[in-house]
Amino acid sequence: MLKITKTGNHGILLPDLGIGLDYSGPDAHFNFVSHGHADHIPWKVSGKVYATEPTKKFMRLRGKSYPVESLDFGIPIQTTDATVTLYPAGHILGSAMVFVESEEGNLLYTGDYRTPPSPATEGFELPVKPVDYFITEATFSLPVYKWAPHNQLQDQVTGFVKEALEADATPVFLAYNLGKAQELLYLMKDYDHPKQIHGAGYKLCQVYEDSGMSLGDYETYDRESCEGKILICPSSALSNGFASNVRKKKIAYCSGWAAMEARRSQLTVDKLIPLSDHLDFFELIRLCENLQPRKVLITHTPNPNVVQHYLTQRNIDAISLEAYAEAS
């Protein structure tokens, strides 16, 4: 039985192997960072830190000054007691799943992931070797969460822009500064209309461009010239004065949570577009069926019980990561 420790809300430790996964703390000799979102970046480390090159750049832009060694996808490295390989996770640029091979068993840690992958990523790939322990996020852990194909979501995005402009309104997309904002730019890169992105998101776009991921033509947000242009910003920016001088706006909320109609009144928006950088409920179940791990460990979820129930019905052993960690 591979010992796995869940360390509060930030990271996973494999104590017998000296390996940390998105782990903040002193007890890992080797730390692997899955991607550049703040809730997965370690705030304190004591051993070596590894990440893909884009993730390393995001970490630098987000103020992390400790040394980080870049790893390419599919190239294994040896630690003291294991072999570790990164695989593309399809979540945001540079996002990686971490595959750990050891005498105690093979473990695949997903971090956050999406399949089919976001088109603004390196894709999605699973290891070909058997997986004993599969640590999966289940952010969208109910059957209500089922995403439309990418081409349909792209049509929703460009259709919203067209409707807003025809109504003489400025189209505003509410989206996270890292990942979702760049995916929106990618989906609209052939749409010939000026685009502006929130300043914090604009800085992160350069990592995409440096990696060869063209996002089309765009510029940083400018209050004086933003009216009538396609605008992208996080939800919090609106309450801080983003585009408050624009006389007429139409607002689209882009998130997996947009699958819930209640979000429209909660956020006072005109359009809900369920564009997620996580996989939906059905893809999660399907992937577990295809992977056939010895045990599925469910984490990053409001409630693991529904996923566990569906997997158990399919004769797949599943448990919350917290419960497994307590038992081990």
Rank of each mutant, 00 (worst) to 15 (best):
D168T: 12
A169N: 03
P171H: 13
Y176C: 04
N177L: 01
L178T: 14
K180I: 07
A181G: 13
A181T: 05
E183K: 04
L184G: 02
L185F: 08
L185D: 04
Y186G: 06
Y186H: 12
Y186T: 10
L187K: 14
L187I: 05
M188I: 14
K189R: 15
K189C: 00
D192A: 14
D192W: 11
H193K: 15
P194A: 07
K195W: 00
Q196C: 01
Q196T: 05
I197A: 00
H198V: 08
G199I: 05
A200L: 10
G201S: 08
G201E: 12
Y202N: 03
Y202S: 09
Y202E: 07
Q206A: 08
V207Q: 05
V207E: 02
Y208K: 03
Y208H: 14
E209L: 08
S211T: 14
S214Y: 08
G216T: 09
Y218F: 15
E219T: 15
E219N: 10
Y221R: 06
D222A: 11
R223A: 10
S225Q: 12
C226F: 09
E227Q: 07
E227L: 00
K229Y: 05
L231I: 15
I232C: 02
I232G: 05
I232P: 00
P234R: 13
S235D: 13
S236I: 15
